[in-house]
Design a protein around this nucleic acid. Structure first.
Length: 363
DNA sequence: GCTGTCAATGCGAGGG
DNA sequence: CCCTCGCATTGACAGC
């Protein structure tokens, strides 16, 4: 009797197939087909009966699915099909066709049949192992392979497809973690190199300044003796570079800043526009230089031209404009006072051998 | 009770 | 239009 009810409902479902075509897709592959197996114990009776009833050609896909559910080669408890607990525990027997065991109540039965199973069941270890092996061979699932696997595992093709889908998602997550770790290691290595180079650069900078001071002192001594000579000989003013260690240091710093701007742009080449830019707080530190203050002495990139001009006027009044300093001879200027600090972009071409030394360090 | 895992669902996008 | 995929999400369940 229950069998007859089921058959009748199946036919009604088939007649409603066009209405529910899109949504029925899952059920045809999934629990509806399983229900057939559940109701008929996985035998081929269903197939024979359907065939005897003469199913129209348009319904052959459903028939094929019902056929495919028979005689699975994997006879272990399959998820959602057999409600025995796959871990050996007791589970209530929740048949999809439970309503059919009661009296036929017409459309209510149909509605009950459309309700998906309430409980989910995990795949057995054997099923997962089998799927894993297949996933290793090829992580994409062609329709034929899907049917074949489903048959071998005693699962529904839809379940196999879902398993592969979820497996690909897990694989992708793992891959992302791996990629992240590799990038992190690479970054740490680069950062260590950068830190070493930075330390070396600082050391060389100090060395240059100390050598510069020594040379300036010598130059001054020479200048004094020449000045006294000139005074004695002709009384003409001195033609040599007038300097003192303090202002010289400032001048050298300007050169350093100038060159550091180049370094900064070099750094921006390293972290170029094609590199990932982490803007959120969690990642922003990843690409920052170890000590940005060493790289950006004066960041004017955000200033407009007017603002920049005003800033220059404030910091470097016209009286101390580098080009206003008395020119002694080609390429030699009266050194600005120690408190003046010409902007890097107004710094004249450095002909001084000392500047050349300082510059060569930062090229 | 909380949390992580996993099977399954729903939806939009893209290809044939 | 159908199918498959990726992705976000849900719900069941196990381990703590």
């Amino acid at each position: 009797m229950a069998l007859w009810h089921c058959l009748r409902l199946c036919h009604r479902l088939i007649s409603l197939r066009s209405t529910f075509s899109s949504k029925l897709k899952y059920h045809e592959e999934g629990w509806f087909a399983m229900a057939g197996r559940r109701a008929y114990g996985g035998s081929s009776n269903m197939t024979v009966m359907f065939q005897n009833e003469g199913i129209p050609a348009s319904q052959q896909s459903l028939e094929a699915l019902l056929i495919s559910t028979s005689a699975p080669s994997f006879h272990g408890p399959s998820a959602l099909v057999n409600f025995e607990d796959v871990r050996g525990g007791k589970q209530p027997d929740k048949s999809f066709f439970r309503p059919l065991e009661q009296e036929d109540t017409g459309d209510e039965d149909l509605d009950e049949c459309f309700h998906p199973p309430e409980k989910k069941r995990r795949l057995t270890a054997e099923q997962v192992q089998f799927l894993e092996r297949n996933f290793e061979l090829e992580n994409k699932l062609e329709p034929e392979r899907k049917i074949h696997l489903a048959r071998d595992l005693g699962l529904q093709p839809r379940q196999v497809a879902i398993w592969f889908q979820n497996r690909r998602a897990r694989w992708k997550t793992k891959q992302l973690e791996k990629d992240y770790e590799a990038l992190k290691a690479s970054y740490n290595s680069l950062k260590a190199d950068y830190d070493n180079l930075h330390k070396e650069k600082e050391k060389l900078k100090t060395e240059v300044l100390s050598l510069t001071d020594k040379m300036l002192l010598k130059e001054k001594e020479l200048g004094n003796s020449e000045t006294s000579d000139c005074k004695e000989l002709s009384g003409t003013p001195p033609q040599k570079f007038i300097s003192n260690p303090a202002s010289r240091e400032k001048t050298s710093r300007v050169t350093i800043v100038n060159k550091q701007e180049d370094i900064t742009s070099a750094n921006s080449d390293v972290f170029d526009s094609e590199s990932p830019h982490y803007t959120d707080a969690g990642h922003s530190s990843l690409l920052e230089p170890a000590d940005s203050t060493h790289v950006f002495e004066l960041d004017q990139s955000d200033l407009s031209q007017d603002e920049e001009d005003n800033l220059n006027k404030t910091l470097f009044p016209p009286a101390y404009n580098f080009y206003n300093f008395p020119k002694l001879e080609d390429g030699l200027y009266l050194d600005p006072p120690a408190n003046s600090y010409p902007p890097a972009n107004s710094y004249p071409p450095a002909n001084s051998c000392l500047n050349g030394v300082a510059e060569s360090i930062f090229i």
